[in-house]
Design a protein around this nucleic acid. Structure first.
Ligand SMILES: NC(=O)c1ccc[n+]([C@@H]2O[C@H](COP(=O)([O-])OP(=O)(O)OC[C@H]3O[C@@H](n4cnc5c(N)ncnc54)[C@H](O)[C@@H]3O)[C@@H](O)[C@H]2O)c1
Ligand SMILES: NC(=O)c1ccc[n+]([C@@H]2O[C@H](COP(=O)([O-])OP(=O)(O)OC[C@H]3O[C@@H](n4cnc5c(N)ncnc54)[C@H](O)[C@@H]3O)[C@@H](O)[C@H]2O)c1
Lengths: 217, 217
DNA sequence: GTAACGACGTTACGTGATTCACAACAGTAT
DNA sequence: ATACTGTTGTGAATCACGTAACGTCGTTAC
């Protein structure tokens, strides 16, 4: 709900930088060596001003004649966004969504490393799912301390989300990606990013409505 | 990228109203008849002012003594958010994520009805997955017109997202929930909600970093 | 050689969203 | 009855964020 203790960038900027980085990787693949703020902006769906301003906040500087160096800027964003070391992550709730996310982690771009999945279902505990070992929820605090986990992904039933959060935050986790539809109560200094699919659906439903007095097209 | 033609509420407000509605449903389950803005705000993770302001925009009014009527306010938000009729939705790309979303639609809260899934994989086409018939991508324009689909969910590979978008937008879809990591180019009047899991991961990774000079706790 | 151009970095500005603050008011207690 | 409490509805103030604008400077054209 509130941004964390000592990171200077705000979440919107972090999000856009991550987006720029992804685009820069594509450009590098395409063999582009340089890029102008306008081109980057177009691909990212923002204004050129926004791009320049964001790059200013990380102190990267380009050239008025040739723009930004694709590789160098990519590395600059990596430096800003990525931890100097691997970051262990855990996932709670190996259901439909949890499995999809685990699968997605195979092509992990960031420096995040999925080190543990947790479930209460005895069918799942002990098995290796999508390359990740699954543990019992009872082992949570030990697991977190042992592996030094700071980040967790919540894909468990909404009814269990708050208690699980209390448990893992107590054990040291302080950054959460929350896929459940509850708003978690967390102490100051703990970062929560909500991916609320229900709300996203409400929005597309709302704007998908075709009113009777439809003008245009 | 831009809000649609004739809906008066803006996306943030729609999102919060949807959140309030969900909370009101919980409260109703718990047998609460009335609720104050503070209580609603606490559960939603916003300020009480924000709640009152949002309710003002939909014209619902409570009582200074007893607050808001849980049921009546719930119905007021339904009236504002829901289409008067069922809204047919389609999903493109029945992969890991697509299946999870289809499964999720079984407990569909909103007035959205999943009427078709689309894939290019011949293994999937023609089968019924999570209660939804799967069609070939070749049938897309017919499908959209025939079923009157205005809303689509994109869970197909990023490399195919733009072309698929062009196709379905051309056929009349004008509200998209985009799970891929590309920023779609769409004409004015088409609403796109991005659920970018990669960016969400970048954020939790960033704020999960524990800096060397860690103060507090 | 010099003028014109175009993109960058940065500051200033505008806009929209959120929060503040308070008058009005229903209920309650005395 | 009257004073008090606590909450609503809402105009005003604030805040955050994105956008525009502009000075600077390398490059290019002539
Ligand atoms: N599937 C989707 O597309 C989707 C969409 C929107 C929201 N969500 C939300 O994501 C969450 C998970 O959805 P799902 O479809 O994967 O549900 P699911 O029921 O398939 O999976 C939930 C998993 O969590 C496990 N679990 C239960 N209690 C647990 C605990 N205390 N600790 C650890 N694991 C526990 C269960 O055993 C199960 O494996 C839900 O909150 C749901 O509302 C899912
Ligand atoms: N799985 C996740 O947790 C996750 C996380 C972040 C982003 N994503 C994104 O979501 C998208 C889907 O992810 P996934 O893991 O489900 O991938 P997936 O490969 O499991 O599924 C993709 C599906 O789309 C189908 N498809 C391919 N081309 C198509 C077309 N033109 N029209 C219709 N369907 C087509 C494929 O046959 C396949 O079934 C990807 O863009 C991915 O980057 C997924």
């Amino acid at each position: 709900m509130n941004t964390s203790r000592n990171n200077k960038l705000n979440p919107n900027v972090v999000g856009r930088l991550s987006l720029y980085r992804r685009i820069l990787q594509s450009l590098a693949m395409e063999g582009q060596a340089k890029v102008f703020s306008h081109a980057l902006a177009k691909r990212a769906g923002v204004t050129a001003s926004q791009v320049r301003r964001d790059l200013m906040t990380i102190g990267y500087t380009g050239s008025p004649s040739s723009g930004y160096d694709v590789v160098a800027l990519g590395e600059a964003t990596n430096l800003e966004l990525d931890a100097p070391t691997r970051q262990p992550v855990m996932l709670l709730g190996v259901g439909n969504l949890g499995r999809a996310v685990l699968e997605y982690f195979h092509q992990a771009h960031a420096r995040l490393e999925m080190v543990a999945a947790v479930d209460v279902d005895p069918e799942k505990v002990g098995r290796v799912i999508s390359g990740v070992a699954t543990y019992s929820a009872a082992d949570l605090p030990d697991l977190i301390k042992e592996k030094g986990i700071d980040v967790a992904i919540l894909t468990l039933p909404a009814s269990r989300a708050q208690e699980a959060t209390d448990l893992i935050v107590g054990a040291g986790v302080h950054s959460l990606l929350n896929f459940t539809n509850v708003r978690l109560r967390v102490p100051d200094g703990v970062f929560v990013e909500n991916m609320d699919i229900g709300i996203a659906l409400a929005k597309v439903a709302y704007y998908g409505r075709r009113e009777e007095g439809r003008r245009g097209e």
